[in-house]
Amino acid sequence: MFITEIYLLVLLVFMIIAAIIAVEIKSLISSVISLGAVGVGMSISFLFLAAPDLAIVQIAVEVLLLIFLIRATLGREIVSEKGAVTIPLRLLSIFIVLVILGFGIIAFRNLPEFGKPVFSLVPEAPSNSYIQHGLKETGSANIITAVILDYRGYDTLGEATVLFTSLLGALVILRAKTKKNGTKVINHKETKARGGE
C-alpha cells in the first residue's frame, strides 16, 4: 500500500465525519461550517492526487459557496423539530442507502485497483495522446489547460453558458421587485377607467 493511499484514507474518514456532522447537527450555521470542512478536505485530497489546479479551484469555489450559504441562513438558523422524518421512514432510508452501498461495492470489483488507471492499460486511450503530444500541438506547458481550452474547448464554452445562465437565474429570483409597482399602477388606472365608465 502506497503512502498516498494511507493519506487519502485518513482524509476520506475526516470528510465522512464532517459530512455526517453537517447532516445531523441542528443548527444550520454549524452545518454550513462542517460543509466547509468537507470542501477543505477535498482540496487537500486533490493536492495528494497530483491535481494542484483542482485544489485551487476547489478552495475558491468553497469560499464563494460558504458566503452564499451563510447569507441564506443568517438570522434564520432555527430548525423546527416537527419537521423531522418519522423513525420507520428513517430506517427505510438507511436500508435503501445500505443496499446501494452493497451494489456499489460489487461494482467496484470490476474497476482497476487504485493507482493503476485505465489509460495506462489501454495504449490508444486519448489521455496518452494528450500527454505525449500536448506540448507540441497546443504549446501549453500545463496539459490540463491544453485539454480544457484546446482539445475540449466546446465543453468549456458550454460550461461558461451553464454558469452564466444559472447565475442569471439566481439574480432574477433574488431581484428586488420593481415591476410589481408598475403592474399595480396599471391596475389602478384600469380600475379608475372602469369606475369612470
Binding site: 469555489v61 452564499f68 441564506a72 460550461e159 454558469l163 437565474g169 439566481a170
Partner: peptide, 12 residues
C-alpha cells in the same frame, strides 16, 4: 464550477 452555479441557484 458548474456545481457552484447550480447550488447558487438553489440557494436563491
Amino acid at each position: 464550477v458548474i456545481g457552484l452555479g447550480t447550488i447558487a441557484l438553489g440557494i436563491a
